[in-house]
């Protein structure tokens, strides 16, 4: 135990302020984010991540948001296990046809108001896979999408900025459209 505490003390806090060029933008978006999360989501934003057909590259970068460098929970953002607890769906991948129904059901299980963000080139436009016998392509071909975060995969930093931006833009109380 002492060694664990020693290690923790020696390493200190490595969570970083974001790089200089982005900092101004982030501060601004961060302020909006806090205000919006306060207004819409009662101070905490719960995200349900859905891999709807990804190559898993996007998942790795979303997971990285929880590593101590990015520590996204400090912005009041946390990932939840059930769509019933979620305010926002973060959807990756071209939507595979085999995941289409599961994705729609996840959307339907998410209470209003809700946001959908399509992540990655695949989520944005189908990426390398496009639309085919097994793939529906972009998330927007299946669900109403509020924002996209591009990149293959988007880096944790662009995920964070994209997330903050999408929420900052969101009109309060706008009812989500139905998927069907």
């Amino acid at each position: 135990m002492l060694r664990i505490l020693g290690k923790i003390q020696r390493l200190g806090i490595i969570t970083e302020p974001l790089p200089e060029p982005d900092r101004a933008a982030l501060e601004q978006v961060g302020e909006q984010l806090k205000a919006r999360i306060g207004e819409i989501f009662g101070g905490s934003l719960a995200i349900r991540e859905v891999d709807a057909g990804s190559c898993n590259g996007c998942e790795l970068e979303i997971q990285a948001l929880n590593n101590p460098y990015y520590g996204i929970e400090r912005f009041g953002v946390h990932f939840v296990a059930s769509p019933r607890h979620a305010d926002l769906l973060l959807v990756t991948g071209p939507v595979s046809r085999h995941m289409e129904a599961a994705l729609r059901r996840t959307y339907d299980a998410t209470p209003e108001p809700k946001l959908v963000i399509a992540v990655g080139e695949c989520g944005a436009n189908g990426g390398e896979f496009g639309v085919n016998y097994a793939s529906c392509g972009a998330v927007a071909n299946v669900l109403p999408v509020d924002a996209v975060i591009r990149g293959c995969p988007p880096t944790p930093l662009s995920l964070m900025l994209g997330l903050l931006e999408a929420i900052g833009r969101r009109r309060v109380g706008a009812p989500g459209e139905k998927a069907d």
Binding site: C55, G57, S96, H98, M99, F129, G130, N132, A134
Partner: peptide, 28 residues
């Protein structure tokens, strides 16, 4: 569940296109 038709999509690609696709079979 995440079958995306990779084998079919490969057909007709040029070499560079196949390398890009193969690099997305499993991102890790």
């Amino acid at each position: 569940y995440v079958h995306k038709g990779i084998e079919k999509l490969a057909e007709g690609r040029d070499a560079e296109g196949l390398a890009r696709l193969a690099g997305r079979i499993s991102g890790d």
